[in-house]
Design a protein around this nucleic acid. Structure first.
Lengths: 240, 240
DNA sequence: CGTGGGGTTGAATTGTGTCAATCAACGTGG
DNA sequence: CCACGTTGATTGACACAATTCAACCCCACG
């Protein structure tokens, strides 16, 4: 896959507007720090269409990216093609800043995206000057570790149905809903499967099961939680 | 389970001696920083026997611990008792410093241990003054994230035999070997199983399989890698 | 010299994967 | 506007890897 984004110059429009409501993990987004806002304001804007590779596994991590709009996935590939999607990145998420070395996973676009690309070195300079920002970075690192550990429990110990139910609740918390409470999943069933350590078929069966038991409404990419407690409860059942 | 360690006063013996050879993940241990050595030198020494809980899941993370000797596990429990062992901690490892909030997992001793307990606040003060140390902390955070992501691939996409082989190679890299290349695993089969997202029986069968195929020698807690490439190769086979 | 807690092995079961067919949605070109 | 091919989603039948259930072994320790 080729990198295929068009850089369109150092944007100057302020960041932190309405695009950021619905940001990640119920925390204030990185952009709250004035110094960081300035940094982002001067950063290169990057646009890319669907299924573009923004960074490759093994690339030196000299830039990080702030997601303005759209959705990305981080992908780790095994030599034989088995794939693990580590996380999905949404508007407001910053990625690639924590690594100190090479990227350990590729970042690919799930939908068309708009990003701001920031040199890591600029981030470090800012962190040294702005203690508030440094603290926020550490907070983000801690959050990522916490999330990674939760994911280990999910992948190591949860059943297929539990994983799917957990995923839906996660997405419901992160993605915006329309008036009727409907949420549109940006990613394919394959992406979901590779995120949950399952196959496409199992994901489908799980979703169908949740729909049939009345926990969710489902229509292609759109879903709505009808009965949150049923989602929690369904969790110990089997699929047959 | 009750906390059951005996504090034996602020130790003054220097840290960084032979106990640290064979430290974590082929990186220089934290103790290389002079400021940190001083911090550790003044820290409270904590001893605990086997199966003691050093920190509980949900406790405020106001202290972190440097492992001087022995082995610990980090444990996440689900309400119904399913257990996930996130990682094993060996001599030279520092844990509990990255969290900014509550511990997201318990830390329990696998063997009798000797630890140094350091207030997080002291760590932060040091990090602000000693840029080298701050950088090392960030490096450790990055390493943990990397390890967590590798673990996701293992738990999400690898077969039982692959997980077991991977685990053995990890342990061979972290634990000291005696003259004959023999390594003693400090943890039980149950701990291994909960670390790999498997059952005790599957771990046993996997180990037996590797022994029968000549990849390893195995006698209770002791093992030796006879054929490293067989370990890698065995990886795609089934157990029957 | 029992006793009990790991560890190992075997047989049966089952949750999830694999393989395959069908369907729905969409773009394309005649 | 409609056949056509393509791609992703869904469903079914079957296979199999790993779990579950159970028995047994082996030491360590009272």
């Amino acid at each position: 896959m080729q990198i295929s984004f068009q850089a369109i110059g150092g944007g100057s429009s302020p960041v932190g507007g309405p695009a950021f409501t619905g940001s990640a993990s119920r925390l204030a987004p990185v952009s709250v720090t004035p110094g960081f806002r300035a940094l982002v304001g001067g950063a290169l804007t990057v646009r890319a269409q669907r299924d573009a590779e923004i960074v490759a596994q093994g690339d030196p991590a000299d830039h990080c990216y702030l997601v303005i709009s759209g959705c990305l996935r981080t992908v780790t590939l095994m030599e034989d093609g088995r794939r693990q999607v580590g996380s999905f990145l949404m508007a407001g998420d910053l990625f690639g800043w924590e690594l100190m070395g090479d990227y350990d996973a590729a970042a690919e676009t799930v939908t068309p995206v708009v990003l701001r690309r920031i040199p890591i070195s600029a981030l470090e300079v800012l962190a040294e000057r702005d203690l508030n920002f440094a603290r926020r970075l550490r907070q983000m690192g801690a959050d990522q570790l916490r999330a990674a550990r939760e994911r280990m429990v999910l992948l190591g110990r949860k059943t297929a149905l539990e994983r799917i139910a957990t995923f839906l609740k996660e997405m419901a918390a992160r993605l915006p809903a329309d008036g009727g409470g409907n949420i549109t999943l940006p990613m394919s069933r394959l992406d979901i499967a590779d995120h949950l350590g399952l196959t496409v078929e199992t994901v489908c069966r799980g979703l169908t099961h949740l729909r049939r038991t009345g926990a969710i409404a489902l229509d292609r990419q759109d879903f709505r939680i009808l009965d949150g407690s049923a989602l929690d409860a369904a969790v110990h059942q089997t699929l047959h």
